[in-house]
């Protein structure tokens, strides 16, 4: 299959079920909401090394307190990890940030038993920072904690909704040059950012150090994706795992997508791939998988590209 002259390999992206949560961070203005959101989602690139994957989803359309708000999505391997990570991140990154408040963004996209919806208590833990002067306020059916701080008050919702999302949707851009790969990746990221319910957890949305499972070293669980490293093309000729790079490809970039639903991940992949194929110098689009043995969710590139546009 070819799009805009770019080969789309007949393969699939293998993704995993993860626990997900959404937080709405509000502040006096966009600058301070963004400071808090960036800090809370910082160093959340991969669960392997960071314990969490996170990113800014976009502006909150209806922030609970009527101020400027940003929605952030968080993904972990387990509910316990989610509780621990959110407690640390909200306590360190949002409570400290000027004028901020933090609310459960809920997960209306998820429903039914499959969604595994439950709650984790975050505000109820952070309240102890108030040293006994914290106060709760129940509005509707939801409890919020008001923690006195030097600036005034930090307001945080007691419980945050956790559900089952998808982590690890991906595709790889194989290009003739670094410049072409970078331009294609930037174009793809720009298109994909519009899809609500998804995030691209890597810096700038793109990863250059794609990984494979396992290593020759026993003390690490993942290592560089040798089959796609251009500098190893010749050296791997006689290897049991030879290079996967076609002639003329000198740079590969990967885009990883975490999303609340398969529909969202698929739509983000579709938009990203289409945008990437429009950049001259892109030779092939492929995807990373483990033979289908590890991840429950398989996104076949041909199916992704054949899907209808999903309004978000």
């Amino acid at each position: 299959m070819h799009i805009n002259g770019v080969e789309i390999e007949e393969t699939f992206a293998e993704a995993f079920t993860m626990r997900c949560a959404r937080a709405t961070i509000t502040a006096a203005n966009e600058t301070w909401a963004r400071h808090a959101a960036l800090a809370a989602t910082g160093f959340a690139i991969s669960v392997i090394g960071c314990g969490m994957e996170a990113g800014i989803e976009g502006e909150a359309l209806h922030a609970p307190d009527g101020r400027y708000g940003l929605n952030c999505l968080f993904f972990t391997n387990s509910k316990d990890d989610m509780e621990k990570q959110l407690t640390n991140r909200f306590g360190q990154a949002i409570m400290t940030s000027l004028t901020s408040a933090c609310y459960d963004g809920k997960l209306p996209e998820l429903h039914g038993e499959e969604a595994g919806l439950s709650k984790v208590n975050i505000g109820g833990k952070l309240r102890f920072f108030g040293d006994g002067y914290q106060a709760s306020k129940v509005i509707g059916d939801e409890r919020f904690w008001r923690i006195p701080v030097m600036e005034g008050e930090f307001l945080i919702q007691e419980e945050f909704t956790v559900g089952k999302g998808i982590g690890g949707g991906n595709f790889l851009i194989l290009a003739e040059t670094n410049e072409a790969a970078l331009s294609a990746a930037e174009a793809a990221v720009k298109s994909m950012r519009a899809v609500r319910g998804t995030i691209l957890p890597f810096p700038g949305g793109v990863v250059r150090s794609g990984s494979q499972v396992g290593s020759k070293y026993k003390f690490i669980s993942a290592s560089t994706n040798t089959a796609y490293c251009p500098t190893l093309r010749g050296r791997l000729k006689s290897s049991s795992k030879p290079s996967q790079l076609p002639e003329g490809v000198n740079s590969v970039l990967e885009i990883v997508i975490d999303g609340l639903t398969a529909k969202g991940v698929s739509e983000a992949m579709r938009l990203g791939i289409l945008a990437a194929t429009e950049v001259p110098g892109v030779r092939r689009i492929t995807a990373g998988n483990y033979g289908g043995r590890l991840g429950k969710h398989h996104f076949y590139l041909k199916d992704v590209l054949a899907s209808e546009v999903v309004p978000q």
Binding site: D65, I139, G140
Partner: peptide, 15 residues
């Protein structure tokens, strides 16, 4: 105590 804007007031107005 002080003069300020409690953030929960926005939630209350919305409710």
């Amino acid at each position: 105590d002080c003069t300020y804007q409690p953030y929960f007031w926005g939630l209350l107005c919305a409710r």
